[in-house]
Nucleic acid binder design. Structure first.
Lengths: 348, 348
DNA sequence: CTGAAAGCGCTAACAT
DNA sequence: ATGTTAGCGCTTTCAG
């Protein structure tokens, strides 16, 4: 904790070095030529005063803020924190700063976050929209005047390019995998069906079931462990009980696994399990859990690169604006086969 | 992605509303009284133009940036991302923004990060120092002129208040727990011994062993799973083999667990295990793993609150600067007893 | 209750 | 090669 003195200014540096302000400016920006001797004196003055240029003044002069924003539901979520890490790293490589704002999937907070970023005149930002269909967000984003990239969830109406994983195909593939194993009574468990990603996964599940002529059994109200437990108990008591479960999000996968263990239901002999999203120890628990893995790092990296491509290309554009906005990157997921789907037993 | 038009300015709003700039300023800052009618016209103009005040200009006028920084090794690490989430939330409550910078525990990046924050004139920041003893950091921090709070790791020399968990006592307690169970050949496995937290934990382990008259067996070179495996294999082959393992960091705990499983070593019958840091599924794997749990959220919350207390109290200080700087908050950890230490079998 | 005007720290013409 | 000066958009005396 430290005292409150004022920061030294460029003018003070100039006075101390016995030169004009322009000269100092030239030295710190290393752009035009300055007499070596003058330069040395300026640099000494800078060091002595501990001078660091005032960012706000530069911005006010019409410069870029060299700052980007990240608007995500939560930064504690491993998915988004990994993306944030990647984004921060790439931003730093470009000499940019990262401002992080969380929305908890509430549009009010999201709107506030975007407005805040605009006030701060960020040069661009990455956003995981709470609601892909929101008209409000769409109009906000068209008004925003800086490059925006949607991450993990697209924005309807091609307002911004997006980088998302192929949730539909990922879920379809997983479901099909279960079907190929011979399971017929495959239930799908999830919460947060209002989210784009979950909806896509649910659609993928249903498409695969329909294609196989099987009856889809979807429960989208698994908010917590209790809900998960009662849902599973009920499904096992039915005359024609479930023989496989496909969970659409991490927490539900873990809950389902624990419930099954606690009930003494053998996996995959009695009930098989596949989860969406890989997680630490998914391969360590017994049985190990088969999952759909998302290319998390790649999502973040692609979004960051897309953003910076637009940031850099802003002056000399190669691509027409229309094409830019329509840019949709769809990244493949992969199924990690482990023991819980019946692919293979765990080595004991 | 969107076009590059200029942002409307306060002056433009004033012209459109047919008033002076001062009036507009008063309306947006809602500070002095403005004729309701005038106010209405200004507000309409603001809405029509989509005006948002330029943050840089405000800062230049000598205002606070209402921005704080967070400097941590990594934001992908669950520990730090949880802290970041908490900090971001509290910052938002105060109307502050959060800038996140990562250091990967490299002092060069750390120095760069702090300088960047100063340039941006953040009002204060939270930092997890790469090296608690670094003179460079200490002098940087004394020069910094804004409140700083150290998180998870202190800064030597009382340069800034710190909020850290009691790693020493946490580890001592865990070790003692193992000793109380009757284990005698207790090994301690870890990597990153250069970090303050790890060193403290190692010290705690050694203190407990010494107090019990047992021989400390410390291996601090577990960088990866392979190193872990060979270390464990070696320790089991000895004439007087290890009967318990205390791992000082998350990744090593998981590695050790997997190695033990793979080798078919029964836990805790042949070798007991306690890990430092709780993690998802630690209670779900079989056997469930006993761990030392850190009050992560509380660490973040306390650091944030400490920072904002100083931020708010900067004008009318109640506490002498000396007392502030010396402020060291030490948070208790707790041992979560599960099956791997031999406390109790898992329910099957 | 409202407006005119002076800067905040910096950069970029424009001079020299 | 270097200095002078005019603002960038905003807040804030100080008058009216």
């Amino acid at each position: 904790m430290t005292k409150q003195k004022k920061h030294p200014t460029l003018k003070e540096v100039a006075k101390r070095a016995g030169v004009g302000t322009t000269t100092v400016s030239r030295v710190i920006n290393a752009v035009e030529h300055v007499e070596p001797w003058t330069k040395a004196r300026v640099e000494r003055a800078i060091k002595e005063l501990g001078y660091l240029p005032n960012h706000a003044a530069r911005v006010l002069k019409g410069h870029k803020t060299r700052t980007i924003g990240l608007v995500v539901p939560s930064i504690a979520d491993p998915f988004f924190s990994s993306c944030a890490e990647v984004l921060q790293g790439i931003a730093r490589q470009h000499g940019f700063l990262l401002i992080v704002l969380t929305t908890h999937n509430e549009s009010a907070m999201e709107r506030e976050a975007v407005n805040t970023l605009i006030q701060h005149r960020v040069d661009g930002f990455v956003i995981s929209p709470a609601d892909a269909e929101s008209d409000e967000l769409r109009s906000l984003l068209t008004r925003v005047m800086v490059p925006v990239v949607a991450l993990d969830r697209p924005v309807a109406g091609a307002v911004a390019p997006s980088v998302v994983a192929d949730n539909f195909v990922g879920a379809e593939h997983a479901t099909h995998h279960l079907i190929a194993h011979g399971y017929k009574r495959i239930a799908c468990l999830t919460g947060e069906i209002e989210l784009y990603t979950i909806r896509e996964r649910a659609r993928g599940y249903q498409a695969a079931m329909a294609a196989a002529g099987l009856k889809a059994m979807r429960n989208t109200s698994i908010y917590d462990c209790t809900a998960c437990e009662s849902a599973i108990e009920k499904m096992l008591k039915e005359p024609d009980p479930v023989d496989a479960i496909f969970t659409l999000k991490n927490s539900v996968t873990v809950d389902a696994f624990e419930v099954l263990q606690r009930m003494g239901v053998p996996i995959p002999e009695k009930v098989a399990l596949i989860g969406y999203d890989d997680f630490q120890l998914a391969g360590t628990v017994r049985p190990s859990i088969t999952v759909v893995q998302q290319p998390i790092e790649e999502l973040g990296k692609t979004a960051a690169e897309l953003l910076f491509r637009h940031l850099k290309g802003s002056s000399a554009v190669a691509m027409p604006a229309e094409a830019k906005a329509r840019q949709q990157v769809l990244l493949k997921t992969s199924l990690i086969p482990r023991a819980s789907c019946g692919c293979r037993p765990d080595p004991s």
